[in-house]
Amino acid sequence: MNYEFNWFYVKKALPQLMDGLMVTLQLTLWANIIGLVLGFIVAIGMLSKIRMIVWPLTAYIEFFRCTPALIQLVWFFFCVPILFNVWWSAEFMGMLALGLNLAAFNAEAYRAAIQAIPHAHTDASTALGLNVLQRIIYVILPQALILALPVLITNGIGIFQQSALVALISVQDLMYEGRYIATQTFRPIETLTTVALIYFAVSFPVSQAVTLVERRTKRLLAS
């Protein structure tokens, strides 16, 4: 290989990449807010015994877990406006699709965590005179949230990476800017490597933090 590296253009385009990163981070943030809140509500619904609630929620979760995020995104972008006659921005559609995708995965994380709390704690709560609601709020949920935390963070950082897909629906995120600069400057190696490194630089500390959080929650709940 006698390729001559030239980082000049990437350096020059760095502010533009940073703008893209900001869009990516905003998308990630909002998708996570939707994912954490909606996922929780869905999980609670899944634990009810009412079929009219459980079935639609199961359909929602399985649909989002069993189709590619890319098709979800493109579907939202192209089909939702036609079907519902709403014309929201690509950013908003991207945020919605990613948020709903994340909520489906998070719902499963919450549900698994809630079901992992030993039944003995229910007995102990009853013996202490706590009613059902008090038991759920003060005994089950705090433990479940601690237990689910590592998975929720992993899912959250996963959506950060998945968010690169929004470039395909013309959202000017980090990926979009990277590809644009790469074609403009004819420097795909330097540009795309830089973009990959930026994604890595954000993801890696978080994934390391997950290991730490996991160790601590495991120790706390081991009793």
């Binding site: 704690h121 013996a127 706590l130 008090q134 706390l220 081991a222």
Partner: peptide, 23 residues
């Protein structure tokens, strides 16, 4: 109970005070 069933997310004091305060 045989297996303690203390609430692991609460301190000793938190375990003792939960039911009196909340219920």
């Amino acid at each position: 109970f045989q297996h303690y069933t203390l609430f692991p997310h609460l301190s000793v004091l938190g375990n003792l005070c939960l039911a009196p305060v909340r219920s």
